[in-house]
């Protein structure tokens, strides 16, 4: 199986608003794919559909040949753009939670990452700073040996120093057999790690290609091209 994720003609409405208009793309094994677009362009809607959080959609979505749901979730490690781990858990309990539910979770790796970051594991998550909570989430998500990592705006709300840390953590902890689907509207920091870029605007794909080819064809960095394409989008 070459493709980890296959999306065909995906459409989704929120009331009268059409959030996605026939989006199609695949993610091959071992590739880091960036879904890039401004806020409200449909990035998170794509991710939520892949994760089975939106069931009322058109088109076809396959993850390792499975439709979105509990079987597909075995293969995906997901980092949403919210604090998804219950904050009443201690860090130790959160590690236990991931260990209980994900067979591919590497407890030692998670503990090692948290120790490197000097995060106390006996404290409740709600007593940690927002930045520390995000680091715990990222550590747990990247401690799985998943086929596909789905990261929704992983650097969206953090300072430049933390961005560097997050990108470094992602790169150090994903294996070459795995793929990454990453959404963001902050291109400059993420550009060096992307293999494929998908520009999405008003629920439609406006550009989809290898990052090197995009740079070559446009004689411009991905970041500059993004600014040109989305200049008038707010």
């Amino acid at each position: 199986m070459d493709n980890v994720l296959e999306i065909k003609e995906l459409s989704k409405n929120y009331g009268k608003t059409q959030a996605l208009k026939g989006v199609s793309f695949d993610i091959p094994k071992g590739k880091i794919v960036g879904v890039l677009g401004p806020n409200g362009s449909g990035k998170t809607t794509i991710i939520k559909t892949v994760m089975g959080l939106l069931s009322d959609y058109g088109g076809d979505v396959r993850i390792m040949s499975e439709t979105p749901g509990f079987l597909a979730n075995r293969h995906i490690s997901y980092l949403p753009d919210v604090s998804h781990i219950p904050t009443w858990l201690t860090v130790n309990q959160a590690i236990g939670f991931f260990s209980d539910f994900y067979q591919d979770f590497d407890t030692e790796k998670a503990r090692g990452m948290l120790a490197d970051m000097k995060i106390p594991t006996d404290k409740k998550l709600k007593t940690l700073s927002r930045g520390m909570q995000e680091k715990v989430q990222l550590s747990l998500v990247m401690s799985r040996k998943a086929k596909l990592y789905v990261l929704d705006e992983p650097i969206g709300a953090v300072d430049p120093a933390s961005r560097e840390f997050i990108i470094d953590t992602i790169l150090r902890n994903y294996s070459e057999d795995s793929s990454i689907l990453l959404s963001t509207h902050i291109i400059a920091d993420i550009e060096p790690i992307l293999d494929v870029a998908i520009f999405i605007k008003d629920g439609e794909i406006v550009l989809h290609d290898e990052v090197d080819k995009i740079r070559e064809d446009n004689d411009n960095s991905l970041d500059q091209l993004f600014r040109e394409v989305f200049r008038n989008v707010h």
Binding site: G52, F70, I76, Y78, Y102
Partner: peptide, 8 residues
Amino acid sequence: GYLTLTLP
């Protein structure tokens, strides 16, 4: 819910 509903 982003964790609970995406559990296997």
